[in-house]
Write a protein that binds this DNA or RNA. Structure first.
Lengths: 148, 148
DNA sequence: TTGCGTGCAAAGGTTTTGCATGGCA
DNA sequence: TGCCATGCAAAACCTTTGCACGCAA
């Protein structure tokens, strides 16, 4: 369709470069704005949103939505679409950490869904929510404390 | 904690009854508002939000978040907490339909994640996104058409 | 009678849009 | 030169909150 993504500007280059040098960062539009400013490159908020939209369309960046009303988080999806599109993501609801899980079991799941349920899972948009090990332990510790 | 959910009012009764008579509906707060008005029961928007919050807390209703900026969707979760908390949900990104998939394969998945990856999946908050069969076919048809 | 529930309006937050200017090609 | 990108401000959007009044218990 459109191999051309438009003009190459200072702002877009900065945003792309930020993601490339922080491939595991997942941050909101505002946080990205701040990070860029910290790097000495001031970019308007609207520009950040517009650039993120384009990057999402191109598949370069992925957008995660937690709960409505909160900011969406963006993360680098790799130059090649394979980096984060061939495995599932686990997001801890407590600490917010995003875990990348390339696992055969999960591949089987999507195959199963495709064959048995006629549903094509979009790895790029799907995030499994739950609680990671460190946080579960921490929660248990807290709940024991409060049992006075 | 609180077996008592407060007063029983005309508005709350109407909302609960709506969900009970439309157990598979998943709609936004605004849509619920409109549906109630159509039934002859006018309920203020804030009241709907407040009631939905309570129902979510109680586990009677679940809240789905699609993408940031869009409205959250609410759906009846049944009187017993088990109805929708023991299986996964598939949401079609094209038509928006929510599919309930109680499937052994998916149970295995969560067991696997718990044992192998120390991650506790929250069924209530996790939705797998993708494309359902009818929509995939429709998309294929469209893309063939545009190949002039 | 007490105090929660309601509804309106206003505030809060994130994201989008309009428009004049600036920069890429 | 032409056109897209930028950035500011304002708008749009969903949701929450403040406050006076009404209704359940």
């Amino acid at each position: 369709m459109s191999a051309e993504n438009g003009y190459r500007t200072r702002q877009r280059a900065a945003i792309l470069q930020y993601f490339q040098s922080h491939p595991h960062a997942h941050l909101t539009a505002e946080e990205l704005c701040d990070a860029l400013r910290a790097d000495g490159i001031s970019v308007g908020k609207s520009t950040v949103y517009r650039a993120l939209d384009k990057l999402c369309e191109a598949g370069t960046v992925r957008r995660f939505t937690m709960s409505a009303g909160e900011s969406a988080c963006y993360q680098y999806a790799g130059g090649t679409k394979e980096t984060c599109c061939t495995h599932f993501h686990l997001k801890c609801l407590v600490c917010g950490t995003l875990y990348h899980i390339p696992c055969e079991h999960l591949d089987e799941l999507s195959t199963h869904l495709g064959i048995q349920h006629n549903f094509t899972v979009d790895y790029a948009k799907t995030v499994l929510y739950g609680t990671c090990d460190p946080c579960r332990r921490a929660l248990l510790a807290v709940s024991k404390k409060s049992e006075t």
